[in-house]
């Protein structure tokens, strides 16, 4: 059943990872949206039977190596938000995009808080905007992420 079409899922995750690596000026760092989280939220909402907790966990490990954080830090955060998403996906899927964005903001905030709290436990003090900056930007771009990935999914005829 798993055909070439399913490659769009890992490819979109890889693209997310690249977007998290692209060098930007230092002050923009805390506003960089968590692309992997956005992509994972979409796929676990659209295809929960394919993209679940394990995919989230393993993507998290890749993010940890990319960002040089502790192994497991982003895995934990992503596993938690994908778990929440798996429980609500049927209700969220049918919502208007604006409402979805608010829900996505909450998920991204939980993701961010988990990561920042772990940083805090290791005596690194993050700036206040580190909590809200990235989730707000993530919320703002969610509609476009959603539409782009939905079109890709339809082209690839995945359901």
């Amino acid at each position: 059943m798993i055909g070439l079409n399913f490659l769009v899922i890992p490819l979109s995750l890889v693209l997310g990872l690249v977007l998290m690596m692209i060098p930007l000026p230092e002050w923009t760092e805390i506003y960089r949206p968590d692309w992997i989280a956005l992509v994972l939220i979409y796929w676990s909402m659209a295809m929960p039977q394919r993209v679940g907790l394990w995919v989230a966990f393993i993507s998290g490990l890749f993010v940890d190596v990319t960002l040089g954080t502790l192994l497991g830090q982003h895995s934990l955060a992503l596993t938690i938000i994908v778990f929440i998403n798996l429980n609500f996906h049927l209700r969220i899927r049918v919502m208007p995009l604006v409402h979805q964005s608010l829900y996505v903001f909450l998920l991204l905030l939980i993701n961010q808080l988990t990561v920042v709290w772990i940083e805090g436990m290791m005596q690194r003090e993050p700036p206040v905007m580190a909590y809200f900056g990235a989730p707000l930007v993530g919320m703002a771009i969610w509609p476009w992420v959603f539409i782009a990935l939905r079109d890709i999914r339809r082209k690839a005829q995945l359901s």
């Binding site: 679940g52 966990f57 192994l71 497991g72 934990l76």
Partner: peptide, 16 residues
């Protein structure tokens, strides 16, 4: 999903 998620949470905390 509850059991896998608990397992993964414990696993990632121990990894860290």
């Amino acid at each position: 999903n509850v059991i896998p998620v608990l397992f993964l949470i414990v696993f990632s905390i121990s990894l860290m």
